[in-house]
């Protein structure tokens, strides 16, 4: 039975290898993908248009802002769906849960280390978020690092300890606020006379040039993305580790 699956696998592989033969040379700067006017435009004009040194951040949040916005919405919807699937479905916390509480005294070394490390992680998350314009980083990475710090708290103590700091309703509100920030910046630029997510029109609100308006709007958008991603990552962990009961956890 199992060997039947090898037929489609190897036929797909043969087709892909047949196509790989026709790919451009490895690292060829004149390959079609690298020669395309779109990416050349991004490389040449990002500095002029937005004054953001990191092209990836600029393309992510500005040129392809619409795409990124709905990617963020997808993450948000995934978080809500996990909540909806697991909410109230967990087994009743019977004897297992109680004995777990007696057994699992948080380890002293682990909690002390986490206590020392978590502020550093959160500071680093803010750094990654804010410094994404000039170095690798941005809203997605900073948000994930931020969510990981809360996951670390939940791992070192237990889930309740982390949920005191970041309860699930608060998580969801923060996630929604992130999307509202993103869409709000888009609508704000629309009301200023541009198109949706046309940040250059924000120059009338900010005392800066058009390019710097885009620069700061990218920062705002990244903050929105970071909010959503951070809270959804923690909500995913909290729900999955406790089967939706939000108690005890691992």
């Amino acid at each position: 039975m199992k060997w039947i699956s090898l037929i489609p696998v190897f036929s797909v592989g043969a087709l892909l290898l047949f196509a790989a033969k026709d790919f451009p040379e490895w690292g060829d700067p004149h390959s079609p993908a690298s020669q395309s006017p779109v990416s050349s435009h991004f490389i040449n004009n990002t500095g002029v248009d937005t004054e953001v040194p990191n092209m990836v951040t600029a393309v992510l949040a500005d040129y392809r802002g619409f795409d990124t916005m709905f990617e963020t919405v997808v993450v948000f919807i995934a978080g809500i769906a996990v909540l909806a699937i697991l909410k109230g479905s967990g087994r009743r916390p019977r004897g297992r849960h109680r004995s777990y509480k007696l057994e699992a005294e948080p380890d002293l070394i682990v909690t002390y280390t986490v206590r020392l490390v978590v502020p550093v992680i959160q500071l680093f998350a803010f750094y990654v978020l804010a410094h994404g314009h000039v170095s690798p980083g941005g809203g997605f990475q900073g948000g994930v690092v931020m969510g990981a710090s809360f996951i670390l708290i939940a791992l070192a103590w237990d889930l309740d300890h982390a949920l005191v700091r970041m309860s699930l309703p608060r998580c969801m509100v923060i996630a929604a606020v992130g999307i509202i920030i993103y869409a709000g910046i888009g609508f704000l630029s629309m009301f200023m006379g541009g198109e949706f997510l046309d940040y250059a029109e924000l120059e009338r609100l900010l005392p800066v040039s058009r390019e710097m308006a885009r620069y700061y709007a990218i920062l705002g958008v990244e903050i929105g993305v970071g909010f959503t991603v951070a809270s959804i990552m923690f909500a995913l962990y909290a729900n999955l580790s406790s089967e939706g009961r939000l108690k005890g956890g691992l």
Partner: peptide
């Protein structure tokens, strides 16, 4: 990032 979100959703379905 969307991949990890969908992975979490799939794991929730597994649970």
């Amino acid at each position: 990032v969307v991949g990890v979100a969908t992975l979490g959703l799939a794991l929730a379905l597994c649970l």
